[in-house]
Write a protein that binds this DNA or RNA. Structure first.
Lengths: 241, 241
DNA sequence: GAGTGGTCTAGACCACCCT
DNA sequence: GGGTGGTCTAGACCACTCC
């Protein structure tokens, strides 16, 4: 080592050499990488420099460290979701070749945090709030926080925790009539960090949404977050003009 | 200090206390924060722990450090781009209230890197490659890499470097007839790190695209990347079904 | 008990910017 | 020259997992 490849920093050179080995398929995802101590010895750098490189590779979604076990190559399996929203029910998902499931996290009543989305006109009063984790083939792919503007019966609320929102609304005679979406990237929220076991600052894809329904007093606001390596969105556009 | 608020780590407690002060508007964006050394003294932690907290806040887009000058609050000014692609020319941009400009970075001939986007059918042979930086009100907001499948005259190539691609194609009798988009998040690429002065691992919003034109042999593939705090996309959807 | 990653420390050197 | 952030080092302790 001591090559100082790209920039100038030692930890960058170490990081890139490890990244190169990962990309070349040198490591079995089931088997831990050589320990930080042995890598430090091999590269002839201090332990803490190697740890710095390994930590940055975690932030980049390339590695995954488990205390007491070791550091592993992070397996990539990303789901592509089409924004035309054909995927609105469990059946749609299964038709696309994976088995979805929903894990209800909490149902509360609270105010929606201002996400500085001037794009959506978010009410300031407390609303019903449903948080859930959506999994595909038992792999968590998105964390969803939804706020409902209108009080609903318990049985309907339960449906929000077990179905996609589109489906739950349609099943209760209030189909979605319009959708406003805002897509951005953001560092993983504390909830995402927890549920996906990703470090602070991990890039996440965020979709903030507003559903209007046939009932003018019933709207749904929400935000779906996914670690960048778990979900991407596609969209086809007609010609401009 | 020594509170160990959220998780357990000291650097997290320091990070969150500094973040709290930033959010509360305690610091003038023009004036550097107290130095890492003085913060370490105030919090009664080691210098390196404070530096760790400051570095993580940089990765989160909250702070910005300039060697020799100090650490500053990162000013937030984000542009919202509507995915309906109404923004396809300089005029459109001006109509939306900002002054766009384009800075040509390079024109080369090279193979397109495989971005593991199975979504787009990317040719494997070398293509014309145009890299440019798009600015809004003199603030860089996106880094664009475009690959053109067909050899073009020099004058047309020059237009790609100074106009939005939609406009350049329309002006040369090959209007875009269909667009395929893939949106995801990703850690900032080396080019983005360089042009936007963001650290390794900084979350970025990425739009990979494929333009088809009226000329079947002329397609444009590309990827536009923006640091997460610079750009977001909105979209309105009609009712499903 | 041995190995792992995560954290914290003190101390040092460098490049950079300002006066 | 004196301040700043960035990097690198050696050494230590902890919680965790596995045997």
């Amino acid at each position: 080592m001591r090559a100082r490849k790209s920039g100038n920093a030692l930890h960058e050179a170490v990081r890139e050499e490890i990244a190169r080995r990962v990309q070349s398929g040198e490591f079995d995802p089931e088997v831990p990488l050589p320990s930080a101590a042995s890598l430090a010895e091999e590269f002839n750098v201090s332990l803490i420099t190697t740890k710095r490189a390994l930590r940055d590779l975690q932030s980049a979604g390339i590695l995954r460290s488990v205390p007491g076990l070791g550091t592993f190559v992070r397996e990539q399996r990303r789901f592509i979701r089409n924004l035309d929203l054909s995927l609105t029910s469990m059946d749609d998902a299964r038709r696309l070749g994976f088995t979805p499931s929903i894990q209800l996290i909490s149902i509360t009543r609270e105010k929606m945090k201002d996400l500085s989305f001037d794009v959506l006109s978010i009410p300031s009063e407390p609303m019903l709030c449903v948080r859930k984790l959506v999994l595909a083939d038992d792999i968590p792919i998105m964390f969803d926080t939804a706020f409902i503007t209108k009080p609903l019966s318990d049985s309907v609320v339960d449906e929000f925790g077990t179905k996609f929102i589109y489906q739950a609304l349609a099943d209760n005679d209030s189909p979605v009539t319009a959708t406003r979406l805002m897509i951005d990237a953001a560092p993983a929220s504390p909830e995402v960090q927890q549920h996906f076991a990703v470090p602070n600052g991990y890039p996440a894809l965020r979709r903030a949404y507003e559903f209007k329904t046939s009932d003018p007093s019933l709207k749904v606001f929400g935000c779906a977050e996914s670690p960048f390596d778990r979900l991407a969105c596609t969209f086809d556009l007609p010609p401009a003009d």
